[in-house]
Amino acid sequence: MSTISLKSFKKKVSIKQSNELTEAAYYLPLQAKRVLWLCLMQAYFSEASEDFESDVLPLFSVSVSDYVKYFNVATAVASRDVKAGVKALGESTVTFYPRDGEFEQVTRPWLSEAGMKRGRGSWQIEFNYKVMPFLVGLSSQFTTYSLYDCGQLNSVKVIRLYESLCQFRSTGTWVTDHEWLCERFMLPDSQRSNKAEMKRTFLEPAIKKINEKTPLRVSYRTQDDGRLLFSVMDKPLAIS
């Protein structure tokens, strides 16, 4: 497949992620994040209606061949990455912040089970049934973005910022604060305790990378109340 046709193919591959998941607190290494994307893609493409979440089962299949196809790596690398990604998902938790109900926040393991199929180069992943509603949406609010676009980013924290910014493409502005970013993205103590350090070592390099590698054009400023105001817009389409 040529470079041009491969890019055209990848641009058509979308991920639809519930805003509850976008706003959750978790850290996954890049391999695990990519495995999660491959599962979210399956939920997205299984959608038959706006109420598709009720029909999505917690079982997903992740193959080495799909990892090769979507992330443009060698088969040996993909095999290693998928195994590492599944292992990291199985050992990790995610914290959600429900808008309703008894709990202000709740932490759950991602997976119930993960099994590698004999000789097939694929894994069957079963998500924790209590996580599934957050994966496919407790509400009608979703963030949709292209796998090709976010696939140009190789830092998980930059990817998380990109996903958050994509929620506000339609309104063009996002207001948040230092504490929210540190908590949700699980930033290190040096950035939690020092706002200037967080901006210098995370936020500004991340925005630069997003502006270089994705369709978004992003800037930010600090308001008088200390909160961060992000400007989010799509870059003009290039005229061929």
Rank of each mutant, 00 (worst) to 15 (best):
M1R: 04
L6A: 13
K7L: 15
S8M: 14
F9T: 08
V13H: 08
K16C: 12
K16Q: 11
T22C: 12
Y26S: 01
Y27M: 07
P29L: 05
L30I: 06
L30Y: 01
L30M: 06
A32I: 01
K33W: 11
C39Q: 02
A43F: 00
A43S: 07
A48E: 09
E50L: 09
D51M: 08
D51Y: 11
E53I: 02
S54K: 13
L59A: 01
S61P: 00
S63M: 10
D66V: 00
D66G: 03
D66L: 09
V73E: 08
V77F: 06
K83G: 10
V86W: 02
G90E: 08
T93R: 10
P98I: 04
R99K: 12
G101V: 03
E102R: 05
E104D: 07
T107L: 07
T107A: 05
W110E: 06
A114K: 06
M116V: 12
K117A: 12
G119E: 13
W123A: 02
F127S: 02
Y129L: 11
V131K: 02
M132C: 12
V136A: 13
S140A: 07
S140I: 06
F142T: 11
G151E: 15
L153N: 03
L153C: 09
V158A: 09
I159H: 00
R160H: 03
E163H: 01
E163T: 00
Q167P: 01
S170M: 13
G172L: 03
W174R: 01
T176Q: 10
H178Q: 10
E179S: 15
L187F: 12
Q191E: 13
K195M: 10
K195E: 04
A196D: 09
E197S: 03
E197K: 01
E197W: 01
K199T: 01
R200C: 02
R200I: 00
R200D: 10
A206M: 07
N211A: 10
E212D: 09
R217I: 14
R217S: 11
V218I: 05
T222H: 00
D225V: 13
G226T: 00
R227G: 10
V232D: 11
M233A: 12
P236T: 06
L237K: 07
I239G: 11
